[in-house]
Design a protein around this nucleic acid. Structure first.
Length: 772
DNA sequence: GAGCACTGC
């Protein structure tokens, strides 16, 4: 049995133990830099535990659930206690702490939730924010909150731990606190740049270049596994294919001396090729983490999962394409853009570092060192490229009313904040003075987007169908697709079979009721994994939804919101003509109250379909008020159905359902090379017009949403709200109702504007990156 | 006809 106590003394942090303790005693804030393997995450909290008996409780945050679990397990072993006693962890759905817990690892989201309950964080004497360099949305908000808490509770110790060297920003933010540097224990990585390649020209062919480079490494470098960073599933599958083809050629020519000579290391002629991205089934992923068999070289084509979330043992060579797929939220259109962009220097460093975990390594960058020099030093923090709806609501809940002047380490764009405030007002979560309402408080209790929370509340108190809505919301809350799509490689029969399964489960009103159908059929089949597999349903999505659902039920009970089953209605179905009679009545859940509930949250996400076309255009309710408000800017973006949507014509070869679509609501829209909606159901426009929320649009202009009293005049606010980057033509067209002009003319307009909008979105996404 | 990565009382 290994001597854990002795191992601990061998870690780089050990020789700084006393200095660290002294520094923590002396200062309220401390920044600690420690590279991977320094032991900072496991050791420093233990030093405090052991050497500072006056400390009550230590909280350590991690950006990922897995890290919170594994680290706390390790530490409880080192402390020779069982997990959950002195040392424990808390993550969503899993609390392994008790009244005796003095060291608690948790996700940053948990601490954020706790801060809403108790802004003073009274249970903690020390709070440690780990992996601060990742700059997650939650960490950034915690920074601001912790600084505020410190003013009220000067005894609270706050430690920020980060891997990057560029931490002066953290220190500056926390009153220029001292920075402690702990040497890491990684191996040197030699960096090789493709000197004649500019990153701009690489963009069109980085996949093939990456494959060639990996192949070059395989044939010329000594043993050691290869990790190739690409951007997404499509890239990765193509790369695996191309690399495999190249290797086949090579094996075919084994007898030819020329090829033989290319091997520098005779032991690794054979390769095992692995794709790695998050949506891979767990089983398919597992093999990547096992060592390759002797004589084989592992070649892994991966997304950014491999940059932060998972570590693959044995990697000696890294190929860095220089690109990443990055999500950024556009407050003007309310759309998420998911675009391939070049990475930051910090990301490049992190990728290269993956080659030196167990031995000296080598990183091949597909771009020149000049291109590297021109990359932005840091990735834009998440808070500057996300919707701030939940964040702003949580801050308002903590009575932080003036969000625009909240102390963020990096301020989000004002448009981003104003958009969140506007939407929260439209949802009824804040009032005219920017103060949270009772409804807003209820909404904040749910671990969901404020849109979905609004829907749930409404289903309980207005539309009497919370049982069903809860189910649908639980599934939609996760971003797994409910159906799995077969790869075309599996053959036409399989594709057809999958489509048949989906058609069988699809509901004619769209995705919401389809979710309910799938859920109930899954329950009827004992929640069996086999049933999911056979019916091309994503089992994981349902299992996760099940725990979410029971969590939501607990919250409903706390809030005293009733759980009500939706009414059943009798529907006449034309059955088979067995005995000459063709009718049969069935009792079914009434879709109307359910869809109406969803509309209370998503009434600004409504689109209508151009006649005979597959394109939708966004509807702005204020068209009917004859005035233009901020959110009307997206009025003419062309929207497309995601192919997995129940209403997509993929399910309906005769396109009967499809042609009957007039108005729809959607839960989400993402722009990649066009704007694609997910979670789409048919609605009636009257439901929108008669909805409560609709009226709030009119009231918007006179509200002081940020809540800073009279600091911003209403004129100034209108300016802030107005989308001045929208082309004038689009602004005008959004004022005129779709009733004027012929269909053909409108279609022309839409086409033209769609192009403008798309260029704008791309431009803005890029501009935001370059700004920072 | 489409899927970067995380997360939540």
């Amino acid at each position: 049995m290994p001597d854990l106590a002795q191992d601990r003394m061998l870690l780089p942090t050990y020789e700084f133990k006393q200095d660290l303790i002294d520094a923590i005693r002396e200062h309220a804030f401390l920044v600690i830099i420690g590279e991977t393997g320094s032991g900072k995450t496991t050791q420093i909290p233990q030093y405090i535990l052991e050497e500072m008996p006056e400390i009550k409780k230590i909280g350590v945050t991690q950006p990922r659930r897995i890290a919170a679990i594994t680290v706390s397990k390790r530490v409880s072993e080192e402390q020779v206690t069982s997990l959950g006693k002195e040392v424990g962890y808390t993550i969503r759905f899993d609390d392994r702490t008790s009244s005796t817990t003095r060291l608690k690892y948790m996700t940053d989201g948990i601490l954020l939730r706790e801060a809403v309950q108790d802004p003073m964080l009274n249970q903690y004497s020390v709070v440690i924010v780990d992996e601060a360099h990742e700059r997650t949305l939650e960490t950034d908000v915690l920074f601001g909150l912790l600084k505020q808490t410190h003013r009220l509770r000067p005894d609270l110790k706050i430690l920020v731990m980060s891997a990057t060297l560029d931490v002066e920003k953290f220190s500056d933010f926390f009153d220029e606190c001292p920075i402690f540097e702990i040497p890491g224990r990684t191996f040197p990585v030699q960096i090789v740049h493709h000197q004649s390649m500019k990153i701009q020209s690489l963009k069109s062919n980085f996949v093939s270049t990456a494959v060639e480079t990996a192949f070059y490494i395989h044939t010329t470098e000594k043993s050691g596994d290869i990790l190739v960073f690409l951007t997404g599933q499509a890239d990765i599958e193509r790369a695996c294919q191309e690399f495999g083809d190249k290797c086949k050629e090579l094996n075919y020519s084994r007898d030819v001396k020329y090829y033989e000579a290319e091997y520098r290391d005779d032991d690794v002629r054979d390769v095992a090729i692995y794709p790695l991205y998050a949506s891979l089934e767990t089983m398919e992923q597992r093999a990547v983490f096992e060592p390759a068999r002797p004589g084989k070289r592992k070649v892994v084509f991966a997304t950014n999962v491999a940059q932060t979330s998972v570590t693959i043992p044995g990697i000696k060579y890294v190929v860095d394409s220089g690109f990443v797929k990055e999500k950024s939220y556009d407050p003007n259109t309310g759309m998420d853009a998911l675009l391939v962009t070049s990475i930051s220097q910090a990301a490049a460093t992190q990728r290269a570092g993956r080659a030196g975990r167990t031995a000296p390594g080598k990183a091949y960058r597909l771009y020149s060192s000049d291109s590297y020099d021109h990359m932005p030093p840091d990735t834009v923090p998440e808070i500057q490229r996300s919707s701030l709806l939940s964040t702003v609501l949580a801050l308002k809940r903590m009575n932080i009313v003036d969000i625009l002047h909240f102390e963020f380490i990096d301020k989000p764009d004002e448009t981003l904040v104003m958009k969140a405030l506007t939407q929260l007002f439209l949802l009824g979560a804040i009032d005219h003075n920017g103060v949270i309402t009772d409804l807003g408080k209820q909404m904040n209790s749910f671990p969901l987007s404020p849109y979905l929370s609004r829907v749930i509340v409404s289903s309980a108190i207005e539309h009497e169908c919370s049982e069903e809505v809860l189910t649908i919301a639980s599934v939609l809350a996760g971003d797994h697709d409910l159906f799995r799509a077969p790869s075309p490689r599996q053959g036409e029969d399989v594709v057809a079979e999958a489509e048949k399964c989906k058609l069988k489960l699809a509901h004619h009103t769209g995705d919401h009721m389809t979710v309910l159908n799938v859920w109930r059929t899954w329950r009827d089949n004992d929640e069996s994994k086999r049933w999911s597999r056979d019916n091309w349903v994503n089992h994981k999505a349902l299992v996760t939804a099940k725990s979410v659902r029971s969590q939501l039920i607990d919250i409903m009970k706390d809030l005293k919101l009733p759980l009500v089953r939706a009414r059943r209605i009798e529907i006449e179905k034309s059955g088979r003509k067995k005995d000459g009679r063709s009718r049969e009545t069935v009792r079914e859940v009434d879709a109307v109250p359910i869809l109406k509930s969803f509309l209370t949250g998503y009434y600004t996400n409504v689109a209508n379909k151009a006649t005979g076309r597959s394109v939708f255009s966004h509807y702005s309710p204020d068209q009917h008020f004859g005035e233009k408000t901020s959110h009307s800017s997206s009025a003419l973006v062309a929207l497309h159905l995601h192919p997995l949507c129940a209403l997509s014509d993929m399910f309906d070869r005769n396109k009967t359902k499809y042609s009957q679509i007039d108005w729809v609501m959607y839960m989400q829209v993402t722009y990649t090379n066009k704007a694609v909606m997910k979670g789409v159901s048919k609605i009636l426009l009257d439901w929108v017009r008669s909805g409560k929320g609709h009226e709030r649009i009119r009231q918007l202009a006179s509200a002081n949403l940020n809540g800073e009293s009279a600091k911003i005049t209403s004129k100034k606010r209108k300016q802030l709200l107005a989308d001045d980057s929208t082309p004038a033509s689009s602004a005008e067209s959004s004022d005129t109702d779709a009733g004027t002009g012929t269909d053909a003319e409108l279609e022309e307009d839409r086409k033209r504007l769609r192009k403008l909008e798309i260029d704008k979105i791309r431009e803005r996404a890029l501009a935001r990156r370059n700004l920072n």
